[in-house]
Amino acid sequence: MSFFHVKSMSVRYGGIRAVRDVDIKVNEGETVALIGANGAGKSSTLNAIAGLLEHTGDVYFDGANLTAQPVFARVKCGISLVPEGRGVFGRLTVEENLLMGAYLGSSQQDQDADLHKMFEFFPRLKERRRQTGGTLSGGEQQMLAIGRALMARPKLLLLDEPSMGLAPIMVEKIFEVIRGVSKTGVTILLVEQNARLALESSQRAYVMESGELSMTGESRSLLQSPKVRAAYLGES
């Protein structure tokens, strides 16, 4: 059995089926991308995996079936989601936001060590540690959201459009961090509008079209696929 396996998952909003019979497998340590057009159902898929949305089908992770588990229990099992739009607590300070990530964390020492590590990763956050989250720029908030998710020491990190709304240099910085996180052995499922960046930063990828998976394969070969190039890389 795979480390992480979503089996025939469907998500409905009222009468509309936004995600249909989706099957996704991720091996331990892998970075897998999920790409697709606006409204394809990528966020719905990630949110359902995290436990934020009701879904049918099953979610297996690290040898356990999480289907019946509520969101906080899935976090406990090692799944952390950085949601679309970041979800920074605007009225909590930067440091408090990071500490929220370690809510289920073990010892005070681990927590202090992780906090130190995040401030090393993101010196900008250290400068702003006493500021409230709401006063940060978009890029800083994205760093904070990622740092906060890492504070939970996740085994599977779900990232929903980490590049959204960021300047190119900031996107570069964020993806540098993501690759660094991947090197430490964290398994990553990455949703991204920027298909090229997503494919270049992952080993495998799934392509989603109006709620269904239409293609899957190694990221390297998808980058060469004429269909993907035409539809998602802006080439003809």
Partner: peptide
Amino acid sequence: TKLGRAMRATSESQRVAGLMGINV
């Protein structure tokens, strides 16, 4: 305190609080 932080986080967003592992 940690409890207080969780209370403030929950009052801002129950959804994101859940993502932190808080039993809302």
